[in-house]
């Protein structure tokens, strides 16, 4: 669906993004991650044909952004970080205008608007003037305008920005429902807001891609398999010896010891949780919990971007 090769964008002498390369397949939901100022919005603006690249090649659905921007614009829905809303219009009037602007035949506009409102749970707000809406609803209208013409690709720049926790959950649900119907590229600087809806992540820092892949792959990329936390009941010394004998385990340390409970941290070059469980159970050591210590995406993201973004 998207092929980006060596994408660079300069603002004057400042390079906002440098030599980005990635690919996104149809139907995927991709999280585009980076701290503020990392270059996310610039990249998405280029993909949304709002800006033209300084160099590099960007192809969407087989069309080049510099040669066939019109063809691309027909196939994408773009929600910028600030929803592009005309405050004086009603929700229905605005969505009808956008639908017609994006080439929906006049006879089908009402149906397209109703469908977009249904997907974003805006039906009740059809006659409301946009200026009277809350921030959460404004964000939804922004999303509705991006999908009113049923595009193949949805580019959403921080769709959860400025929303309260309840609104974030609602917005996440809306985006989750779009999965399968559209390819979705969604950016955020707060991982917890999107980590439940994405298939894959592209992490950008200071204008460069520093990692990409699934949560699992990012974790492996970060610390070659990652640390594993094991909670055992009693017999901590035996457990440490047993785990040390598991292949690819390089180190085991006791993090916490309380009465008959011990927490161990295991370093390994691959995911050896099944092997650890088998070894401990075989020796009658009670395993209370086992998990990837750095498997939480928030930790991965922070570690990846640490020290890179000023």
């Amino acid at each position: 669906m998207i092929r980006v090769d060596g994408l660079t964008k300069y603002y004057g002498a400042h390079a906002a993004i440098r030599n980005l390369s990635f690919a996104i397949e149809s139907g995927e939901v991709i999280g585009f991650l980076g701290l503020n100022g990392a270059g996310k919005s610039t990249t998405l603006k280029v993909l949304g044909c709002v800006l033209l690249p300084t160099s590099g090649r960007v192809a969407i659905d087989g069309f080049d952004v510099t040669k066939d921007p019109h063809e691309i614009r027909k196939r994408i829905g773009f929600l910028p970080d600030t929803p592009p809303l005309y405050d004086e219009m009603t929700v229905g009037g605005y969505l009808a205008f956008v639908a017609e602007l994006r080439g929906v035949p006049t006879a089908q506009v009402a149906q397209a608007v109703a469908e977009a409102e249904r997907k974003t749970t805006l039906t009740e707000k059809h006659h409301d003037v946009i200026s009277s809406l809350s921030h959460g609803y404004r964000q939804r209208v922004g999303l509705a305008q991006a999908l009113v013409h049923n595009p193949k690709l949805l580019i959403l720049d921080e769709p959860t920005g400025g929303l309260d926790p309840a609104q974030i959950v609602e917005m996440r649900e809306v985006i989750r429902k779009l999965k399968g119907e559209h390819t979705v590229l969604v950016s955020s600087h707060i991982l917890s807001e999107i980590n439940q809806i994405c298939d894959r992540y592209v992490v950008i820092s200071a204008g460069e891609i520093i990692a990409q892949g699934t949560e699992e792959q990012l974790s492996l990329q970060l610390d070659s398999g990652g640390a594993i936390e094991v909670d055992v009941k009693g017999q901590a010394t035996i457990a440490i010896d047993l785990i040390r004998n598991v292949p690819t385990v390089s180190d085991v340390v006791m993090v916490k010891l309380e009465k008959d409970f011990a927490q161990l941290r295991v370093q390994a070059t691959s995911d050896v949780r099944p092997e650890i469980v088998r070894a401990l159970v075989k020796a009658d050591v009670d395993v209370v919990r086992i998990d990837r210590a750095s498997g939480r995406l928030e930790n991965i993201f922070l570690k990846l971007t640490q020290g890179r973004d000023a």
């Binding site: 949304g48 709002v50 019109h70 773009f78 910028p80 956008v98 602007l101 994006r102």
Partner: peptide
């Protein structure tokens, strides 16, 4: 100023 130009720029409009 309001960011709505992005709507026109990202639509199939010359």
């Amino acid at each position: 100023q309001t960011g709505t130009l992005a709507l026109l720029y990202s639509s199939p409009v010359k």
